[in-house]
Design a protein around this nucleic acid. Structure first.
Lengths: 207, 207
DNA sequence: CCGGATATGTTGACAGCGTACACATCGGGT
DNA sequence: ACCCGATGTGTACGCTGTCAACATATCCGG
């Protein structure tokens, strides 16, 4: 409810600024988050932003949060498999990995933003409070738990299983966005993505 | 031969600038490459740099080249295995992967620099001119070829085998440098690195 | 041996960036 | 009815990369 648009007080500028910031970073990543441009799009003077964010870093952190949420939404979310369906468990893990890569390729700017923070808040301890993890990571944790439930991954091997998976898809995404994989044709790239996910999943199951 | 140090003409400024740039980026990555600071360290005015580099991007490209060379030097280079030694071939591939990760952790700034280029020159076509590939990549190509020679990887599976390997170690390095893996203790991190390399190698061999 | 051409370094300036400080204006509680 | 805190504006500062004009050292042909 933006009540009196008195032309001086905006209503809820914070929201408007965040939307402008999302628009900017979508096209150009974190580097495209320029305070003056963002405030101009909101029809406001540059310094107005400082009533809502301490500095550019704080602003970026807020954008990161928004982007991570969208990322989780857009990552394919198939129904979790029944505990006794091994094939579905493996398929679920694969889907999480490919979803990660797909998001990165579809929204390069936002993907870069999602990691543009000194410390990815609360992802270091993969510990118990599963609900407090960044949403994309929670998907991965669940898929691995399902793998254990299906009897495909020994519980002893469960701790730390996130890292190989995350490493593979994260690395692939970056090679495809900023690295040499950008120059290979889309078809071949898609095959490479599938093979990468496949290799790490297979390797994980047999360790 | 820096002959007359007449205090106006430097001798070979280009080299001095590159060394200053390496020093700066070593500590702070590409973002720390500040023209004014670099020229100051060389004892010269800011604009002097423009006699040797078109602009900051060209300068960065030159630094990238230097860093990639150092990276190749520092990546463990064990003797290539005999064509009939499967264990040695696998060990070789593992060493390349772990060397990549080790370099990234030992020289975070330089590692970031190594990828701070719009297009990683000539890495897109993993094609024939093996000598023209960036040095770190060549190591990987050789290790995979050795795997084929040892009969562990079917020649049909050889093309594109670089991507899963590179993805895994690259992703791991970034998660460890800028991502959540930074917060986990070094011991655990080392184990995760080994497991990641292991998983992808194992997965690759069984595809 | 000398004198202009050329390479190389300096000076000064400009636009764009994040942001600190002082001031203007609006909305809500006493 | 008033005033006070929240919110937006204007001005300014230091930092960045980079351009244009100028100064100086080196080299090459007469």
């Amino acid at each position: 409810m933006p009540r009196s648009r008195t032309a001086y007080h905006h209503g809820n500028l914070r929201q408007a600024l965040l939307e402008a910031a999302l628009e900017l970073t979508r096209a150009g990543g974190p580097a495209a988050l320029v305070v003056r441009e963002m405030t101009a799009r909101a029809g406001v003077s540059p310094n107005a932003a400082y009533r809502h964010f301490a500095d550019r870093d704080a602003l970026l952190a807020a954008v990161v949060e928004q982007v991570q949420a969208r990322m989780a939404e857009q990552m394919a979310a198939p129904a979790r498999p029944a505990p006794d369906d091994p094939d579905a468990a493996v398929a679920g893990l694969r889907a999480v990995g490919l979803g990660y890569i797909e998001f990165a390729l579809r929204e390069p700017g936002w993907f870069e933003v999602a990691f543009a923070t000194p410390r990815l808040a609360g992802a270091g301890d993969l510990g118990r409070p599963a609900g407090s993890l960044p949403p994309p990571l929670r998907r991965l944790v669940e898929a691995l738990d399902d793998l254990v439930a299906a009897g495909l991954l020994h519980p002893d091997r469960r701790p730390g299983a996130e890292w190989p998976c995350w490493s593979a898809v994260h690395g692939f995404a970056l090679l495809a966005l900023q690295g040499p994989l950008r120059e290979v044709p889309a078809e071949e790239r898609r095959a490479a993505a599938a093979r990468t996910v496949d290799a790490v999943v297979r390797g994980l199951l047999q360790q």
